[in-house]
Design a protein around this nucleic acid. Structure first.
Lengths: 184, 184
DNA sequence: GCATCTTGTCAACAGTTGTTGACTTTCATC
DNA sequence: GATGAAAGTCAACAACTGTTGACAAGATGC
């Protein structure tokens, strides 16, 4: 009982925590190893280097996310819960935050965009049907997340209040109700 | 005629170009000096260091932006033109892109958020009136910019087309038409 | 002509980054 | 108990970061 996790597992946990919260470029391998109480050399040994460790935190991020086929109302609920809200541990930021934090990185930016940006968009497309509305819906999701979490704007971030949820819903449903007039 | 610009001016121009396009952390002083064809030491001499040079590219970014008091329709036009579209040189990214690119930086992130995020929000608030709608409007602006420029999502980025503008308008006006029901 | 200030150049600095190879320890298997 | 693979430790590496001080050239003022 109370199995002590292996060095590899502790490294992975610390990496997901730190990389997601502060960004790939802003975390050094020494800090990472210190947080995991592990020798630095093990990062290269187990994951091939800093970049490999970061990739390991990315690959299974979507594993437990399942979007049910449902109406617009329920979809808004699910999307907000899954992508915008922070995970259960209360420290690691949401998937969207991580994406936005690392999307511009010189080393891993392209990978993050391809792996999660496109993947998330495809999921929403399959769920919503029309690609246009899916893209707009995702843009709304991104905008609110950026405004609240990245820029910390006043007037957006009132998590848990009914007002915040009403704002969210209004914009989401505007995105979902949009139909363009060109060929389909 | 054809005045050759001083080293200080070339440095400032190269800094605005490179910092805004690739982010503060992803540009080294050596690359900066090389692009401006200037000795590295002059960065510290003239601007007090890399950070000071970056700040110099920030301070006057809002100098030429003036939002007129107008209706919702014209406001959408102005906002899109001023904040989302790229400047005239066609290379330097928009103000929003620069904000989003550097908002998470460990060194200058807080400054960028405070100087431009808050400032832009205050401008929109003064213009729109209701802080709630201004925040939502700004979130919509951010979301579209992120989706198009940062994540390069398909389905959003069709600049110059009527369809793209229609999407923009629909979401913007949804943001502007929102009213919350709590106390004001 | 001399002094002074600006403008620019050069080489070196100390600090941090990610990575690696040699080493010891641990532990299971024969 | 001997063998050998796995797990972990240590010190050093080369590459890069931003910054600085000493120095030279040119313009300006008296």
């Amino acid at each position: 009982m109370a199995e002590i996790p292996s060095a590899r597992d502790r490294l992975l946990a610390a990496a997901r925590q730190l990389f997601w919260a502060r960004g790939y470029a802003n975390v050094s391998v020494r800090e990472l190893a210190g947080a995991a109480e592990v020798d630095i050399a093990l990062i290269s040994r187990y994951f091939g280097g800093k970049r490999g460790l970061f990739q390991a935190t990315l690959t299974d991020a979507f594993a437990d996310i399942e979007l049910p086929a449902c109406g617009a109302e329920a979809l808004v609920d699910h999307a907000v819960r899954l992508f915008v809200e922070a995970p259960r541990d209360g420290v690691t930021p949401s998937l969207l935050q991580m994406m936005l934090m690392n999307a511009h990185d010189a080393d891993v930016g392209a990978e993050v965009r391809a792996l999660h940006g496109d993947r998330l968009q495809k999921r929403l497309e399959r769920l919503i049907g029309a690609p246009d509305r899916a893209a707009l819906f995702m843009a709304a999701l991104l905008g609110l997340s950026v405004a609240e979490k990245s820029l910390r704007l006043a007037g957006i971030a009132r998590p848990g209040t009914a007002e915040y949820e009403a704002q969210l819903r209004h914009m989401m449903q505007a995105a979902l109700s949009y139909r363009h007039d060109s060929r389909d």
